[in-house]
Design a protein around this nucleic acid. Sequence first.
DNA 1: AATGAATGAGGCTTCATTCAT
DNA 2: CATGAATGAAGCCTCATTCAT
Lengths: 197, 197, 197, 197
Amino acid sequence: MSKEKGLKGKESKARIKAAAACEFAKHGFHQTKISNIVKRASLTQPAFYLYFSSKDAIFNELVHEFRTKLWKLIETQRLSPLMEKDELIKQMTASIEKLFEFFAEDPNLTRIGLVLAPDSEIFKEKLIRLLADNLHFEQRSGTFRLELSMEIVAVCIFGMIEQLIFQCLLKNKSNPKKLAEEVVKLVMSGMMEFGSA
Amino acid sequence: MSKEKGLKGKESKARIKAAAACEFAKHGFHQTKISNIVKRASLTQPAFYLYFSSKDAIFNELVHEFRTKLWKLIETQRLSPLMEKDELIKQMTASIEKLFEFFAEDPNLTRIGLVLAPDSEIFKEKLIRLLADNLHFEQRSGTFRLELSMEIVAVCIFGMIEQLIFQCLLKNKSNPKKLAEEVVKLVMSGMMEFGSA
Amino acid sequence: MSKEKGLKGKESKARIKAAAACEFAKHGFHQTKISNIVKRASLTQPAFYLYFSSKDAIFNELVHEFRTKLWKLIETQRLSPLMEKDELIKQMTASIEKLFEFFAEDPNLTRIGLVLAPDSEIFKEKLIRLLADNLHFEQRSGTFRLELSMEIVAVCIFGMIEQLIFQCLLKNKSNPKKLAEEVVKLVMSGMMEFGSA
Amino acid sequence: MSKEKGLKGKESKARIKAAAACEFAKHGFHQTKISNIVKRASLTQPAFYLYFSSKDAIFNELVHEFRTKLWKLIETQRLSPLMEKDELIKQMTASIEKLFEFFAEDPNLTRIGLVLAPDSEIFKEKLIRLLADNLHFEQRSGTFRLELSMEIVAVCIFGMIEQLIFQCLLKNKSNPKKLAEEVVKLVMSGMMEFGSA
DNA sequence: AATGAATGAGGCTTCATTCAT
DNA sequence: CATGAATGAAGCCTCATTCAT
């Protein structure tokens, strides 16, 4: 009976959040105006401040939401150790596919969290470090070539994924599965034709 | 005495440009204030408008300058066709090294042209298309594996390079030569240890 | 409580409009500052932009308002055709008196619409053309002397009225009725004493 | 030998003055920019201040020049007293023609002196008072009908002339002689057809 | 006699945010 | 829960004017 209260409020807040995500993604932080957010949410400006303390606040909330979800996803996707090669490739492909699916699910949040947030470079750095650690582990297990720097490889893999997100996935030029397969093919075996040397 | 004709003006314009590049790179377009640009250039606000017609104008000039230079560099770096494998790798490495050197030369412009410009995604798309065409050519010559989509590979390579620029090169964690070598190693031969089959 | 819906806003807008008319009339368009308009209306600058999109906008609105009202007045004041001489003079006098009354009612708008508006000369031209057409009609009916160019007479009559507005009416040196009578006397019968020739 | 000096300077000053008159007449005082004046005069901004102390100064100089010339012209055009009717009309026509010729000679100055100058209304008032005095004199001589207020008639005549200047003369729709004749016809004998009761 | 370079002052406009209801 | 009305703060840009040469 008391829990019921606030239902309309929650809807309004959600509408504002969705509207904001859309506007931020389309125009960036500074060119997004509160007035446009509330217009899109069919509300008025003071209503905005009923649910968010400031423009920064809602932006940060969106960023935080995105990052939390992404981080959780990644933690559930850790590779099982000491697999066979085929199995490894299959798992990697599945993991990356899941990642792409996540990014495709909410393009607005993806852009906000990966591009627009002022500290996105630092966030990416963290993700990359996480990836590098995992790769290191595999490398020490003999899965990956020793002559490669896993730090740099991690940066590369992340760069590929990010670029594929914005140039292919969010432009609907391809789908998560296909992209994941291609990345893995490239990264695992390289571009060169066999028989060389 | 006679040589200085218009020299002071050119110096002022250059100082403004450098100051602007610095401010834009550090704070982004909207948070960069003309007042700060001219302060950094040791001038007053109206002086700015002696040399540039608006904030947009100088920003676009910087973007245009960056892109023109980059495009020229790339055009001089086309791979010679039909090389042997070793030679190919050497050339690719050299080309990519040159690229990294270019980006490292003016980090401010690099950030402005690749990240901050509102149409940078479209610009990247063009670069990627150019790269994809070149790769296609090589693929048809039998250099690259047929099962890979050169469109996607092009996106991947560009993504790697971009990420390496911002995560390694501009943070001085590595140098152009090293980065170029690592990218080529990874992209040409993949990560997998041999003998796995 | 329920009647006041939007009332305060309308009052503010009206206050701004009146203040603007006053300032424009006193100082002209360019020397009128938004800051002074709002000061006179007991508001702050941003409030101005709640009701008008720019300085130009409010000026044009005032001009448009004046012209619309004036045009409507003139259309209701058309002379009935084919009257006797005495009746004609009475009607003309009444019409012109109404005109003067209109101009005296809002001196600010009058100055804005007739003098300050950048296209006021063109507007006057239109009014004069309208007047000329009417005079032509009367001339063909035999009321006015054929040797006079009604185009030029129309210009003259308009010139008299305008000058009387600014030199007599708005300086309170005379009143609409008196002025109308004098104009008609002069224009109908001329200055010359009878019996001449 | 010493008088010769300054010839080039005088030319420059004259060029600036002409340019200023043109710009002021076309755009009004506030929208006229020094930068445009000197551009039109093929000079640079500091050169302007070699000859005029400020924007106001040159404007006032132009206004003063116009008014001085006009005043002189009017003083030489006083009607000879106690003429016969035909002679009076001839003289009036000639006088007014001369006036129109004066205004047509320098349209820019005319607009500046009669419309643009902020105190032009007061200046016109003076002219009108002068005219009214003359008319009074004639009226007392029995030339003009006693029932007319010469003050108001003076305003009317001035209004006609001014309107004819801007609506006919400066638009090249008529010439000084024709306009003078029409004004005199109208003002002397009125519009009404004879024989009317 | 003239110019390239620079500036002080000030106006218009925008926007996040708040008050009173 | 929501709104109409209002504001403080700040940025871009323009222009008359001057300095040094």
